[in-house]
Each structure stands twice: as C-alpha cells, then as structure tokens.
Amino acid sequence: MIEIRWHGRGGQGAKTVSQLWAAALLEAGKWVQAFPEYGPERSGAPVQAYNRSDDSAIRRRAAVTSPDVVVVLDPSLLAEVDVTAGLDPGGLLLVNTEESVSAVRERVGFEGRIVCVPGDRLAIGAGATKANVVVAGALAKALGDPPVATLKEGARIALGGKLSPAALATTVAAIEAGYGAVSAGRCVPVSRTPRADGPTRGLKRYRDLAVGAVVAAGTAGRTRTGGWRTGQRPDVELRRCINCLLCWVYCPDSAVELSDEVVFVGFDYDLCKGCALCVEACPTGAIAMVAESPALRPGLAPQGK
C-alpha cells in the first residue's frame, strides 16, 4: 500500500488533485482512497488531503499519519506545518518550490529523497491557474507510476464533468509540464520494512488522546495565521495616522496592535491574513499593501502544537 499526504492551502486544489490521482490509479486497476481532512478549510488555511492505493482492498479509513509520500503544494507551509511528520525515511518528499533540494532539506531536516518542482512557474507556462496538477505530473514521474497517459485519463475522469474542454486541455498540458520537469524515479518500496500493518498502525489509542470538550480559553492567538497572506501585507505610515481606530474595528483578525493608551502602533503579522480591509478603512490613506516574499512571511510557528 502507498499512502500519500498532500499539504496545501485552502483554494490550491489539494483535495481535487488527490481525487484526480485516485481516479488515475483506479483506472490502472488499483484499489484507491482519496479524501480531505475534514475541518474549516478556509481559503488560505493549511489543509491536507490523503490518498491510499493498493493491489488489494484497503481496510484503513483513518487519516494518513505515516505516509510513504508527502506532497507540499505551497512552500510557505514548510515553515508553518510539520510536513514530514510520520514520513518514512525511505519515502519521498515532493515540494512545489523554486528552492533547491538542499535548501529544502535544510529547512525540514528530512534525510530521505526530496524532489523540488517549480510548479507555479510551470503552471503559468501551461496556461493553468493552479500548480496542483503540475505537481501531480511530477509525482507520477518521480514515483515511476502511474504512466503519464493514465494520469491524464484520471484528469478526464475526475475533472471532465466540471471543466470546459479548453480548461481540461490546459490541465492536461500542466500535467505534462510537471511530468517533464523532474527526473524519473522509481516507486517507493511498498513493503520496505515489515511492519504490523493492521488498520490501527500509527494511531493513538483512545486513552492517549487529550481530553476534549473543555479547552483552555483564549488559545487561538498561538495559532499563526500570517502564513495565509498571498504576497502582500499592510504597512502603515504612522506619521499620517490620526488614531481614529477604524482599522482596529474593521480588522477581522485582531491584527491591529494598540498600546495600553489605545494608540495604534502597528500590525501583528503573525495574525494578519492580508485582507486589506484596514487599507480600505483608513480615512487618511496611512495604510498601504506592500509586497513581501513568501519566504519572509512571518507567522511561522508550527500549527496546532
């Protein structure tokens, strides 16, 4: 059995690409599963989707916690989510990034095989809006399976009903671009180490789970949502600020910081999602959105820890 975990942000098509992947392998005669992590998958929020495939029926239904393959659709997640959690050292980490393999290896500290693909650039080149299918093409090549023709068939099955013929053709071109962009590899060894492969492998027992129902108040602030920004952050020219506090009242993410004397002092970039409502709200034009590099985005503490 091969287990894949896709990491993306809401809106990047992690769920869609996992379905496409499953459709292709189903076409190739495998038993398959594809499902997203159910939760508030808001646009920009870190999300996960999973695939399992095998030559026989798959009994496991739980989330993939010890994957053979991890795919990361957004490089900013490397610093925000523990993407290699549970990843087998004999497995594969595939990242959509402009960075080099050694740079990614240094950031995540993963010893196994890493493949990088500049998915966003290739997607634009193919006329596509999302890198997800490019990355799927690269994954097929890196694993040696399924063949690119099967993957394209998977795209037709999974997306044909939703996309126009032109958009489907673009998707297929994007898959090919990804397939051509990485060097061929071989399939991850399925049974690389003998292990108790029952349905509960890697899962916690109920006694080990934290008690739910009542949680400590006011703990969301520790969750960094700064990584949701898409390349722009608000910047203030304090000289022009008249402290009307309109940016404060209209910020959905409590990211406008005030001093004890309730004077506006700046933004909390760990929380700010970059909606630009503060820019719209400011009557003096003191706030503007400025470009920022994704790699420099603050808000980089691991989530949910």
Binding site: G39, R42, S43, A45, G218, T223, W228, D253, S254, K273
Partner: peptide, 21 residues
C-alpha cells in the same frame, strides 16, 4: 478589548470575513 480580549485573532475564518467584525 485591551483590558480583556474576549475574542482573539488566530481563528480560521476566511481572509476578510465579516463575521469576526
């Protein structure tokens, strides 16, 4: 809010959501 922030940032509502406002 400065004295006691009853509702905090760090939630997962969409970018630019009107609800937390």
């Amino acid at each position: 809010e400065r004295r006691q922030s009853r509702f905090q940032g760090g939630h997962s509502l969409c970018r630019g959501c009107g609800v937390p406002i």
